[in-house]
Design a protein around this nucleic acid. Sequence first.
DNA 1: GTTTAGTGTCACCTATTAGTGACATTGTAT
DNA 2: ATACAATGTCACTAATAGGTGACACTAAAC
Lengths: 213, 213
Amino acid sequence: MKKTEMSSTAPTKEKNKEKSKQQILDAVGKLLVEKGYAALKVNDIATTAKLDKKLIYRYFGSTEQLLDEFVKSRDFWSNVNDERAPQPINDGGKAFTKAMFHEQFDTIFENKEFQHVLLWRLSQQRQSLQKLVEQQEASGELLFEHIIQPQFKENTPTFRAISAIIISGLYYLDMSTAHNSSIFCGLDMASTEGRNEVKKAIDFLVEQTYQHL
Amino acid sequence: MKKTEMSSTAPTKEKNKEKSKQQILDAVGKLLVEKGYAALKVNDIATTAKLDKKLIYRYFGSTEQLLDEFVKSRDFWSNVNDERAPQPINDGGKAFTKAMFHEQFDTIFENKEFQHVLLWRLSQQRQSLQKLVEQQEASGELLFEHIIQPQFKENTPTFRAISAIIISGLYYLDMSTAHNSSIFCGLDMASTEGRNEVKKAIDFLVEQTYQHL
DNA sequence: GTTTAGTGTCACCTATTAGTGACATTGTAT
DNA sequence: ATACAATGTCACTAATAGGTGACACTAAAC
């Protein structure tokens, strides 16, 4: 009978472990968003997770490993990786490029955790964060090879540079909006109008690039 | 005779105070560049300055005030403020805009202290850092009003957005070059070639904007 | 010489932080 | 019932952190 119970109900011990690990990982995310990566201390994490810090060491080995685990647990570049080209690409990727830039701009704006991870990886040399950079480069490379190169031929490097400016510009604007004043070049980057101006600018720049590069 | 000495030679005590204050401020800069803003701890600062931390409290009041003092002591936006338009502006500011973007890109690349302050102000809400944002906005506003507005009329907001993307893009690229891998969109942002591609891209984007916006 | 004010040094206190050993609790297998 | 293994709790250490009081030294004023 006891055996029957065991096999019918999932083992509660295991469940609690997974639940606790999840609580801890979530606490990292919460602290990251609320106080920034500098506030990621074991004691705070444990308190936020409402668990003893001992469990952090037991389940993750060390604070370092916990943070690495946290980074790995989030899939920040899924929206870039995923291959849903919304419309067939017969314009050399123009519409796709515009849409991707818009998506990046909005996704990062909404995802505070993402913003803090961007900032974190600018500030610290953590291996798991470095991996994000490589991952991002790799997924971007696919686009450049398959869509941009055929379109722009020998001008591909310039297109790369233009993309670099635009993408990193969007990153910075989203980060600075969340942490500093939201005014940049006189536009309110937290308002719909301001953000629409940026999107118009993106479309304009991409359009001009496709027409005149 | 003693009195004569006093009035002829500067009082050495005062001199030492100023020298010590300078040593402390320089130590902040050195630590900021070498270890990032998170490493700005009193003990480290004092050690780096080769002085007792007591002096930090005596001369600056607190660590907080020291850091504010440090930020105020540097004039990071002088290169933007200063009104040396290299050529007469009869092209609506096109050449000036290109030159300014290039200058920003290179200045920040070379000035590691500047990079760290950019990062610092994204990460922390310190009043003296916030003032930098306002100062920067104010000096930019002059350009928009006097040069851009007459040229672009009702399209000025779009031009603002384009500038916002480009400037913040240059910021981010310079920061990420120094702290992460220097590869972005497949271009090496630490190499001359990579940076020249970016400059070509800047010129192209500005050119297109002036021709077709 | 004595006083005085400012500079610099040292020892000390306190709070925070990371990390661990010991133990109590609980669910499960025998 | 007993043994066992994993979860969770607590008290403790050690290191690092910010900050201060007391005192020695020195240059100038009298």
